[in-house]
Amino acid sequence: MIFRPKYFFGETFSNLKRNFLMFFTAITTVAITLFMVGFFLVIVYDIQGILGSIKSQVEVAVYLKDNITDELRVYLENEIKSWDEISEVKYISKEQALENFKGEYEGSDILKEIQGNPLPASFELRLESPEKVDLVALRFIDKDGNYIEGVDDVIYGQSYVQKLFSIVAIVGTIAFLIIAVLLLATVVLIFNTIRLSIHARRKEIEVMKLVGATNWFVRIPFLFEGFFEGFVGSLISVIFLFILSNYFLIKGERAVVDTMHIKDLAIVGSNNVILYIYLGLVAVGGLIGIISSAFALKRYLEV
């Protein structure tokens, strides 16, 4: 068959004009359904990001006894550094602890009450794998259940950390299911809409076939149309998503972050992943359009 782009594009766009209502329906269906999928993806990605950044901030504070020798301290520090679970060890001396404390409570009456330096020196540990925080804490306890020599106390938010990890897992699973169901609904809706618009033109297809058109000749303008509907529809959904996440979600999150004093929190749109979500939606839209058209056409081509 001779490929004639002028005919195919001309046909696609004159059909666009003449079947405007059908195109409008198809495009809005794609836009609304993909918007829902995209909205969920952004929200889920966002929640995962926030939980992830909280997770990465899981710290273990190891308080040292005041009478610890320098040799023992250095030995402990090197020992901790050699563990796989640890990404960073920071030593905070008694003096620095006091400085930090003063900084945090500047102007407060508490400072006047302090005499000398009651604060202990400590190690602040950041973990490579925050899930293993229990394991790390256990390493500071000897077989009798006491802290090892030189260590006064080990503190990490046991219950809160464990809860956080199970929330991350649950949210991830539920979100995956919802997105899968939404995506399936999207495919079915788009497919039905395109099938209706092809059904409305079955007479045209029949006449084409009876005057000797090959199947591909009939098919190509419909595939173009399907692609166009999917592409434009998904583009519209991405524009709305962009506005929603940039002007509403981010503002909302900034406010939450500011009131909760969480540092280094991942915020929507601050990452390339959102861009990939947008690109993915457009690709999925175009693809669903083409594939739906191809499948919906099948039975009408059998003339």
Partner: peptide
């Protein structure tokens, strides 16, 4: 007749020729 309602007389006939290239 099986004419296509959204095409003009000219287009309806031209269509049969376009279809065969």
């Amino acid at each position: 007749f099986k004419l296509l309602p959204n095409k003009t007389v000219f287009e309806n006939i031209a269509f049969a020729l376009e279809v065969i290239g």
